[in-house]
Structures are given as C-alpha cells and as structure tokens.
Design a protein around this nucleic acid. Sequence first.
DNA 1: TAGATTGTTAATCGATTAACAATC
DNA 2: TAGATTGTTAATCGATTAACAATC
Lengths: 210, 210
Amino acid sequence: MSDKKISTAVIKRLPRYYRYLGELLENDIVRISSNELSQRMGVTASQIRQDLNNFGGFGQQGYGYNVNHLYKEIAKILGLENHYSVIIIGSGNLGQALANYTDFEKRGFVVKGLFDVNPRLVGISVRGMDVQDMDQLKDFVVENNIDIAILTVPKTKAPAIANDLCEWGIRGIWNFAPVDLQISNFDVVVENVHLSESLMTLSYRIKDSY
Amino acid sequence: MSDKKISTAVIKRLPRYYRYLGELLENDIVRISSNELSQRMGVTASQIRQDLNNFGGFGQQGYGYNVNHLYKEIAKILGLENHYSVIIIGSGNLGQALANYTDFEKRGFVVKGLFDVNPRLVGISVRGMDVQDMDQLKDFVVENNIDIAILTVPKTKAPAIANDLCEWGIRGIWNFAPVDLQISNFDVVVENVHLSESLMTLSYRIKDSY
DNA sequence: TAGATTGTTAATCGATTAACAATC
DNA sequence: TAGATTGTTAATCGATTAACAATC
C-alpha cells in the first residue's frame, strides 16, 4: 500500500500517458519534454509533471524524460509487470469478445477459464478453452489462484457471484454488469465498465450540439 | 444548444441517477427524497440536488422527487427520447457483441448495419443483418441518415474512418479503438471506451491494495 | 399549521495551472 | 557556462459540501 493518497483523477490519466509513450517508443523517439508531450496529448505540461511527480522524479532538468525509462516506470506503477490470472464469467458475446482480445494478454492479463450457466454455451471452445459450467467455478478459482474475474453476466446475477468471488479470494472484479456491486471486503477492487452509461453520455452531447 | 455550460462531471453522473431511478420505478417506489437517494447511491444529497438543478427544479419542497417524473426528465436531458440510427464498423467479436446487446435498442439506439473489411466476415448474418463490405459504407451512411457510428476497428484504421464519417454527416462516434480521434468538425461528438485503460486502472488498484 | 425537503447561496475542499528556483 | 526543463511551491479555478431560507 502506497503511503500518500493518489487521486483517482491522476490514476485514470496514467494509462493514457502510457499509451502515448508506447507510441513514441514505436516511433523511436528517445526523449520528450513535458511541454512537447502536453501538446501531443492536449493537456498542460504542468499537469504531466505534477502527475508524474506523485510517483517520483522520472525526468531530468534541461533534458526532459527518457521515453523508454518513463514507459517502464509507468508500467511498474500500473502493476503491468505483474502477471494476473483472469477468468471470464458469462461467456456470451461480450465475454467471448474479451476472451479473444489478445492485447490484454500482452499486458499480463492471462485468461485461464470461461464460465457460463447456459448449457448451450458450456462446452464450446473459446480461444482454445472449453466454457465451463458455473458449478466448476469455486474449485477453479481456488485451485488456480485466480486474481481477476471479468463479470459479463446479467445484472441480476452479478451481485451474488461477486460476493462468492470475494470469499474465494479474488483480488479484482472487472464488472460489465449495469449494477454497483457492494463489496464489503476492502481487499477486493471493482472496476466498472458501464457501456450503457457511456452511450447515454454520447447521446447527451449529440443532443446538446444541435 | 443549452445556454449554461454543464460540467462533464455532472453529465457523467446523470446515467447513474437514471439507472437508480429505473430500479426504484421497478420496485413501485413513487417518491424519493434527495437524502434517501443519496444513501442508496453513496453520494451526498447536496450533490444530487445541485446536479438536478442544473437542468430545472424537478422536486417539490416537503415532498421530494416523484420518481416517475424525474426518470422521464432525465431521459429527456440525456436525449433518450430521440431515436438514433446506428452502424457498427468492425464486425469482429466486440462489434457483434454490441450488435446483439438489445438494451441499447430499448434506449433508442437502433443498429441499422454492420461493416467490415474482412471478406470472411462480410456476408455473415449478425442479428438478422448481413455484414457489409466497407466500400458500401459511404452510401449506407448517407442514404440511411446514420447518426452514430460504433467504431470497433484496429487503432490504425480508426482515424481515417472517423474523418470520412464526419464528412458524411455522422453526429457521434462511439470509439472503442485505443486512439484519441482528432475530429475537426465541432458538430461531431466522440465518446471513447478505452477498455485497456480501464483494466490498467484495475491493475493499479489491485497492486496498491497489497 | 408544522414538518419536511427542496432550491440556492455561501463555505470548503481539491484539482489544475502558473511560476520559478533548482539543476542537469 | 548558458540554455533548457524539471520538480515543487504558490495561485487560481472549479467542483463538492454545508447551510438555510423558501415553500410545499
């Protein structure tokens, strides 16, 4: 646990810095100043320096930041040098789509299993794995030390499953169900992807731009 | 275009209010005070009242808010009484998953067509629609007055497609590609869903909770 | 009417930006 | 060394919370 509290605003900007640095790296750019990065990203240089200095002094006066070094440091901050064992609960369209998203594996998130209640889905092969029945879930989570569960189940099912997962020692839940999971275990982290809400925000802004 | 500027923080909270009100409605709850809603949602009553009063006085002193009325008002604010014609560009796993997500249609977002460059996908049927080749895109967008494009294509392809869409009169882009689209047309709204970034945020918080 | 609760103003808090001394 | 650019403090801005008069 880090000592000083980092605001979520800062944390949510880190992956974007990481993405831009990755692109710079692909273009063989060795160093970058906060000022140049700020122009590319459309944020202030001040904000970049403030954000980074929450975690350490990664730059050098008169020079800027070494792209490769900063890229790796942000990976460390984000925990991307770790290896996470992931399961997908709910193997419908979205679950399968996420299972097939190879980018996640590159970042250390390895899908170890898929689950569903639907007998039509149980047994089908997704990315080389057979979808398992939900009654296999507990044993699988415990035996394989699963770190992260991706929840792509209906909103009615999600809360009970989430509670079970917490008891079975999961570390994080990536929740795609349109509910706010009430997790009493402080060691379990929930990150929500509420697609409907994102779409409504788009709708608001379209409407507003008339 | 509304007169006073509403902050994005407020806008992003509206769909969550909408979701909670929908649940209250399902449970036949007729009225609710900002105080009770605040406890259910885990926000302050002050914030709820402030947020809502950006758009009008929907409550009544001594009574609170009529759930049904407020629900409908928020739908109006979010533009959910409108009917949007939607296309999906990129008909891989994620595109198909989104096409099959019936909840969107309930909210007025009607998928009118799917597109892909991949000859293996062109012609397959997704939710009763044949995936079309990308060379059909322009005519389809123009002839069908498409409002919203869902972009589930690789990041290398997204910017050029987005530019074309703007020229062809699209109103909004729901972008799932991990790039920041640079749109010069101020009438076109972009909403990003950066799944990798969401997952990295989860990773950060898992790491941090050790 | 009395009680409850909103709408709204004022106070506080936190996040962003600006400025500049430190230093490479 | 001189120039550039960071790290960091101080100033500003905006968002959240508290308080309360208005009013149903």
